[in-house]
Amino acid sequence: MLFQWRHEDPAASTPVRGAQHALRLRRIFDDTHDLAWRLLRRFGVPPERVEDAVQQVFLITAERLDDILPGSERAFVYGVVLGVSRSIVRRGWREVLGDDSDLRSAGPTEAEALLDRKRLVEECDRILDRLAPELREVFVLHEIEGLSSAEVARLVGIPQGTVSSRLRRARQLFRTEVEALGAVNTSTEVHGG
């Protein structure tokens, strides 16, 4: 059987409950999987660890499914992603490998576009790597994922004013890095040919 029950409770461990459980979990998965994957990447989880981390997120979600209020599933997953990413990054994982599998399977023109896209994402992550974790979280959630400041405040568990100040600082640092990157690219174009 796909589901076994750790604590036998005749009222709860029925097939019907199992089906409800699985359907709800599948719906949450469909709604939030890509989001969780992307957030873990942006929060600094190394590529080779992201898939495991995503699975960890949904295993936790499965475990806590009964505690999640209907309508708050997405917020729950956001919170779990934050916790998992903090746990991994805190343990000192570092990005050491790249995954070029999508490039290998693409045609020449498509590969160029993917490469451009991939480089942009890599540059973005490189800049994010230079932000302090607390600045990075706020920046990613607002600027990349589009959460409002109030949503970020609730999710991260800080006052909205703190979100604003962190975001302001993160924007300044991000802009500085972007301008440096732009200067390097311009310089390369001018001097390199």
Binding site: R26, H33, R38, R117, L120, D125
Partner: peptide, 23 residues
Amino acid sequence: LIRAAAEEGPPPSVRRRGLAALG
């Protein structure tokens, strides 16, 4: 940079493996 990061998504195989792991 922000647009590329916001639009990035996992390969379909990652999603399938995730579903498989959860049964």
